[in-house]
């Protein structure tokens, strides 16, 4: 791939041919404010917040403008600053001011952008505020949809289309009445939505927000325990509880994608019905017992049924190390090859 050199705000940077100005900037850690862009998706160029001035004459959107050798870009040109500040003011004037109780607070792209472009209370007070009042869609068990917070960046629509190919949602209506919608704006749970949550993680505001989300204290990188794809996950931990699962963007298998089970099906981990002590059946009922009691009984019984009177069924859900020891135990200790697992089911 050939390299080109462009200048952004006086700084010369090199970029790959075919990159957009925004990508080139981001690759060098330069921030150009934007709302509708997402690295996984094709650029849309709709929020108009990433406008820059090119070669001192043309206002263009950096997310769609391909780099060209010798190109000179200004992000601080007065005309550009005015357009993007007005644009962000328009969005904020159309957005509920409920930041403190908002799911996205602190993690909100709109907050970040508004701060960056210099939105002020005085500036905002000039505008007429008319927030759309559309009832929330709370039908999905894992996330809520709040259209009043939606900035119509279309990231969710493009995610559902370009990445998931599910197309549960699309733009509907037009102009100021535009909204992201299922057929007939029916509850999302009644659509073909597969609840993968890919749109939820990409929503720059809290128009799509996980239900009852808890911010984890720290994250642990691991592998999903459901199907054989082996998606990389980040288990969010708070105390001794898994409170969230995110896709691991660095994992080569899923590159961050997850399905509904992988992302939201984690509550079994801290489920109250988890077994926490050994149980021994006494008079037909299972009763709590100590490990010693249980192990003694097992050792005694297994010792009496060595050879082909014994069989072990390992599991396709436990680790390689677990499986290795179980087959070793069966073969080396119990003296039989009667070991299998549920691979076939």
């Amino acid at each position: 791939m050939s390299k080109v050199t462009i200048t952004i705000d006086g700084m010369q940077i090199s970029a790959d041919e075919g990159m957009t100005v925004l990508e080139a900037a981001q690759a060098h850690g330069l921030y150009i404010p934007n709302l509708c862009n997402h690295p996984d998706l094709k650029p849309a160029g709709l929020c108009r917040v990433c406008v820059v001035k090119m070669d001192d004459w043309k206002v263009t959107v950096s997310c769609k403008q391909p780099v060209k050798d010798g190109m000179v870009i200004s992000t601080e040109d007065p005309e550009v600053q005015k357009i993007r500040r007005n644009t962000v003011e328009l969005i904020v004037a159309d957005h509920p001011m409920t930041c403190l109780t908002c799911e996205a607070d602190g993690n909100c792209e709109l907050q970040r952008v508004a701060h960056y472009v210099g939105v002020t209370p005085e500036g905002l007070n000039r505008y007429r505020r008319k927030i759309r009042n559309i009832p929330m869609d709370r039908s999905n068990p894992f996330f809520d949809i709040d259209h009043s917070k939606c900035i119509l960046c279309g990231i969710c629509v493009r995610t559902c289309d370009e990445l998931q190919n599910i197309n549960a949602i699309d733009y509907a209506q037009r102009g100021v009445t535009s909204l992201i919608s299922t057929l007939g704006n029916k509850p999302i749970a009644d659509s073909r939505c597969e609840s993968c949550g890919e749109c939820v993680v990409r929503c720059p505001v809290a128009a799509l927000a996980p239900k009852g989300a808890q911010e984890p204290m720290y994250e642990v990188k691991s592998i999903c325990s459901y199907c054989g794809v082996g998606c990389g996950v980040m288990l969010g931990v708070r105390g001794q509880k898994v409170v969230s699962v995110e896709g691991d963007r660095n994992n080569p298998v899923n590159k961050g994608s997850l399905c509904v089970k992988g992302r939201y099906g984690y509550k079994f981990i801290n489920h109250p019905e988890r077994l926490s002590t050994p149980l021994i059946k006494k008079n037909g009922t299972l009763e709590e017992a100590s490990w010693d009691e249980a192990l003694d009984l097992i050792a005694e019984k297994f010792s009496g049924s060595k050879g082909d009177k014994f069989a072990a069924l390992a599991s396709a859900r436990i680790t390689n190390e677990d499986n290795y020891l179980i087959q070793k135990f069966t073969r080396a200790v119990m003296g039989t090859n009667n070991i299998d697992h549920c691979a076939r089911l």
């Binding site: 160029g45 709709l46 929020c47 108009r48 917040v49 357009i83 007005n86 644009t87 328009l90 969005i91 004037a93 159309d94 505008y127 007429r128 008319k130 900035i151 119509l152 279309g154 733009y171 209506q173 037009r174 102009g175 100021v176 009445t177 535009s178």
Partner: peptide
């Protein structure tokens, strides 16, 4: 124009809305 704006970009969708609200006022 507010009614006929396709709604995809912010300046047109919300700009015409804001201009209209001001003019209505």
């Amino acid at each position: 124009t507010e009614e006929e704006s396709c709604g995809q970009c912010v300046p047109c969708r919300l700009g015409t809305k804001q201009l209209l609200e001001i003019l209505k006022d």
